[in-house]
Structure formats: structure tokens, C-alpha cells
């Protein structure tokens, strides 16, 4: 049970903030001021202060739960315009709810891209895709690479532009779970974490702030060069094995949020992506070894 610091005998003022996440403009409205503070902390470089010239893609609200739950285990609900897709969360987890809500919003609407469920990082204009599979440790690895000189394009979505064939950045905080939080704290002193949200649906979650450079360069796409399916296995030595293009294609088509929906466009975008990349699977237990190995990936013959 949580106790509130001050009696809530009146509704506090609603706050509004507009910020950019990669190609999208988000307009957030909420009476929960703590969320707005965290948004300012996470997205400082991309908060929109002057009037913009592009329309808002995601009008979202995070609201307090029903009145009878204001004092006893207060709740928060997520709304994308007139739709509320999730059950209420504990109010303390409202920022995590907002981040997951935005993931959902992007996945159901951003069909101008082939949406892969993957972390993406960039070096020298070349993008490395780390597709998510259960237990892959994708977020931990992405966090470690982002703290070792790679530019974080995204932790959750590979936004593949079917026309330009490039991958668009979508830099957002990386939600790290359970032991990963301590692993990354120990990995780098530069890691800036938000509050730990204990016992969410996905365990304890803390958000790693995206590097300022990632946020400032969020309009710079990258050419896909490497696809690595990571797999964390305790005690395993670093092992890297090449994957065939057809196998990679099949696995990525399963991993995409909208591959089927896009039809021929999705097929062509994915085929081209796989053909322009070197593809591996890699098993690791030591994060430092894996980060070093990612820096030595050979590029595809152009």
C-alpha cells in the first residue's frame, strides 16, 4: 500500500508537454506531475518549446484511476486519444505505463515503416540490429553498447523505411529489468537511471536515460549493415555463428509487428534489409566480451 504525501482534496492542475520521439511528435496531458518531471529528465533535448510546423501523431493522456482508488492503492490509466488499451497500473508506475503505452501506439499506427522488434545502434553511419527474442538480453546489450560509443537509435523498434531502405532513429529510455539494472550500473559510471519501479508486470524496471547525442541526432537515419541475434547464456563463452539470409529473413518476418500487414512492401523492405546486412547469431555471458566483439564486426562487401 502506498501513502500519499499530501491530502488530495482537490485535483491538481493538469500539465501538458510536447516532445519529439524520432519522427513522431507526442503531446502528453496528465494531472500526474511526476510523469512530466520524468519526461523532462528523459527527453530534455527533444522537448518542443516553440510552436511547431508538424502535426501531433500521438495525443496521449495518463489519468488517475477511479475516485474510489485515489487513496487506497491509487491507479493510473493510459489513453491514446479516445482509446484506452490497457488495464490500470499502480499510480507509482505511471511513467513506465506511459512508455509502454507509446510502444503500443507506435506499433498500431506507424505503418509507414516496417516495424521490427529490435534494438538498433549505429557506428560510422552503419546500423547494427539486435532483434528481440525471449531471453536475448537485447536491452542490456543495447544499453552497454550505447555506453561504449555506439549511437543508440532505438531500444524497441527498428523503423525500416521501405523507400529509402534506411533505419530511422527512435531514441527513448531503455527499460532495464531486474538484475540488468545492477549489471549496467556496474558496467558504466556514466549510466543515468530514473527511479526503480518495483514489481511491475515485467519485474523491477528502471529506465536508462538515452544519451544526449542520440536525442540531438534523432533525425539522422543509418544504413543497415549488421544483424545479430544475441542470446545471453550464463557461463557460456562468446560464440558467433553466421546465419544464412533465408534463415534471417524467416526469423525477422516473425519478429516484425507489421510484416504481414504491409504485404508486398514489407516483403521487399525485409528482403532488401537482409541482403544488405551480414547476419549472425551470438551467444555470450560476459557483456564486455560481447561489446568488444560487436565493435569488430566485418562489414558486408558493398
Amino acid at each position: 500500500m502506498t501513502r500519499r504525501q499530501r491530502p488530495a482534496n482537490r485535483l491538481p492542475a493538469r500539465q501538458r508537454v510536447e516532445y519529439r520521439i524520432g519522427p513522431f511528435l507526442v503531446h502528453l496531458e496528465t494531472p500526474i506531475h511526476r510523469i512530466v518531471e520524468l519526461v523532462h529528465w528523459c527527453y530534455a533535448e527533444t522537448i518542443v518549446r516553440a510552436p511547431t510546423t508538424t502535426p501531433v501523431q500521438f495525443n496521449v493522456r495518463v489519468e488517475r484511476g477511479p475516485l474510489h482508488r485515489r487513496w487506497l492503492r491509487p491507479q493510473a490509466t493510459f489513453h491514446l486519444e479516445d482509446v484506452s488499451p490497457f488495464d490500470p497500473f499502480p499510480a507509482d508506475h505511471a511513467f513506465a505505463l506511459l512508455e509502454w503505452g507509446l510502444n503500443w501506439s507506435i506499433a498500431i499506427r506507424a505503418h509507414q515503416y516496417l516495424l521490427l522488434h529490435a534494438a538498433v545502434l549505429e557506428r560510422d553511419g552503419r546500423a547494427l540490429l539486435l532483434p528481440a527474442t525471449p531471453g536475448s538480453g537485447k536491452s542490456t546489450l543495447a544499453a552497454a553498447l550505447a555506453l561504449r560509443g555506439w549511437r543508440l537509435l532505438s531500444d524497441e523498434f527498428g523503423l525500416v523505411d521501405p523507400h529509402s531502405r534506411e533505419i530511422h532513429p527512435l531514441p527513448r529510455p531503455i527499460p532495464l529489468k531486474n538484475q540488468s539494472i545492477e549489471v549496467i550500473r556496474a558496467f558504466s559510471a556514466q549510466a543515468q537511471f530514473g527511479p526503480v519501479f518495483p514489481r511491475t508486470r515485467k519485474g523491477d524496471v528502471a529506465h536508462l536515460r538515452p544519451p544526449g547525442d542520440s536525442l540531438r541526432r534523432q533525425d539522422e537515419p543509418a544504413r543497415p549493415a549488421w544483424i545479430v541475434f544475441p542470446r545471453y547464456r550464463a557461463g557460456s563463452p562468446l560464440r558467433r555463428a553466421a546465419m544464412t539470409q533465408s534463415h534471417t529473413f524467416a526469423r525477422l518476418s516473425q519478429n516484425s509487428f507489421n510484416y504481414r500487414l504491409l504485404g508486398a512492401t514489407g516483403f521487399e523492405a525485409l528482403a532488401h534489409l537482409v541482403q544488405s546486412c551480414r547476419c549472425w547469431r551470438a551467444e555470450y555471458s560476459d557483456l564486455k566480451d560481447m561489446v568488444a566483439a560487436m565493435s569488430q564486426l566485418p562489414t558486408a562487401p558493398q
Binding site: Q57, R109, H111, Q112, G263, T265
Partner: peptide
């Protein structure tokens, strides 16, 4: 955004 919804 409008055109992206055509695929559905």
C-alpha cells in the same frame, strides 16, 4: 500518417 493506414 494518413497514407500509412492504407495497408490495413
Amino acid at each position: 500518417e494518413l497514407e500509412a493506414q492504407r495497408c490495413i
